[in-house]
Computed example of a mutant assay.
Amino acid sequence: MAHSLEILIDKISGLNEIEALRLLAGEFPNEIVFSSSFSWEDQAITHMILSNQIPVEIFTLDTGRLFSETYYVWSRTNEIYNTKIKPYYPQNQPLEGYVKENGPNAFYESVDLRKQCCFIRKVEPLNRALQGKKIWVTGLRAEHSPDRHNLQQLEWDDSHQLYKYHPLLHWTTDQVKNFIAENHIPYNTLHDKGFVSIGCAPCTRAIKEGEDFRAGRWWWEDDSKKECGLHVH
């Protein structure tokens, strides 16, 4: 069956998020995955998938440097939804070599060393997780970055050679928080403490009133360089 971007966009046009996820899962059986970092957005999408028994595999990237609160949400999610979210870990040899050569906190020293760390701990494991897949579901929202305002809800990702679907792209923060509350979904309590984008513990801080969504990530770097390579546009 031919799957052009235009045809798929037309098929999901007018559908809500759950209906669109179900349709895409039907179009690409065993070839659709969702990457979760256990953020508000990702927990909302996880709830949509699992509570509606939509056949989408859920995985996470465990960098080895996550907050204890993140691991707690992971455990609670597995327990509440009776699921087993699949972890992908960094390969030991590159990671051991990097830490031996540069030290455990080398990412603070230069943008290049930080990007090397992100590649080993996140990008390479992601590439393995997406291998052989046709649809990658993400929790991206337009509010999170100016670069995402022009995104399409369904797009072609040339770097990974697959489609990306962002079900909550146009949701506001309040919409996401209300959905979490209404459905009693477990979430990362760091969100209540000013953390918006939650990644590795050494690289994430709470943001202040009026600061940009991304200000809490790699705060020691220039704004123009603050991406880790997972989402390339």
Results as ranks from 00 to 15, higher is better:
residue 2 A to Q: 14
residue 3 H to C: 14
residue 6 E to H: 06
residue 6 E to D: 06
residue 8 L to W: 12
residue 10 D to L: 06
residue 13 S to W: 09
residue 13 S to I: 06
residue 14 G to V: 02
residue 16 N to C: 08
residue 19 E to W: 09
residue 26 G to H: 01
residue 29 P to N: 00
residue 30 N to R: 13
residue 31 E to H: 08
residue 35 S to R: 09
residue 35 S to A: 15
residue 37 S to T: 03
residue 39 S to F: 03
residue 44 A to Y: 02
residue 47 H to E: 13
residue 48 M to K: 12
residue 54 I to M: 13
residue 56 V to S: 05
residue 58 I to F: 04
residue 60 T to R: 09
residue 62 D to M: 12
residue 64 G to F: 00
residue 71 Y to T: 02
residue 72 Y to M: 09
residue 74 W to T: 04
residue 75 S to L: 09
residue 75 S to A: 08
residue 84 K to G: 13
residue 86 K to F: 11
residue 87 P to W: 09
residue 88 Y to G: 00
residue 89 Y to H: 02
residue 96 E to H: 11
residue 96 E to W: 08
residue 98 Y to D: 12
residue 99 V to P: 00
residue 104 P to K: 00
residue 105 N to W: 08
residue 105 N to K: 14
residue 113 L to H: 10
residue 116 Q to Y: 02
residue 119 F to Y: 12
residue 120 I to M: 06
residue 127 N to K: 15
residue 130 L to P: 02
residue 132 G to E: 13
residue 134 K to D: 11
residue 137 V to N: 04
residue 138 T to I: 03
residue 141 R to H: 05
residue 141 R to Y: 03
residue 145 S to Q: 07
residue 155 E to R: 03
residue 158 D to E: 15
residue 159 S to L: 12
residue 161 Q to K: 10
residue 167 P to Q: 13
residue 170 H to A: 15
residue 174 D to R: 07
residue 176 V to S: 04
residue 180 I to F: 03
residue 181 A to S: 13
residue 183 N to Q: 06
residue 183 N to V: 04
residue 184 H to N: 15
residue 185 I to G: 02
residue 185 I to P: 01
residue 186 P to Q: 04
residue 187 Y to E: 02
residue 188 N to D: 13
residue 189 T to N: 10
residue 191 H to C: 02
residue 197 S to D: 04
residue 197 S to V: 07
residue 203 C to Q: 01
residue 207 I to Y: 07
residue 207 I to T: 14
residue 210 G to V: 00
residue 212 D to K: 15
residue 218 W to L: 05
residue 219 W to G: 08
residue 219 W to C: 06
residue 219 W to Y: 13
residue 220 W to I: 02
residue 226 K to N: 00
residue 228 C to Y: 13
residue 231 H to F: 04
residue 231 H to T: 09
residue 233 H to N: 14
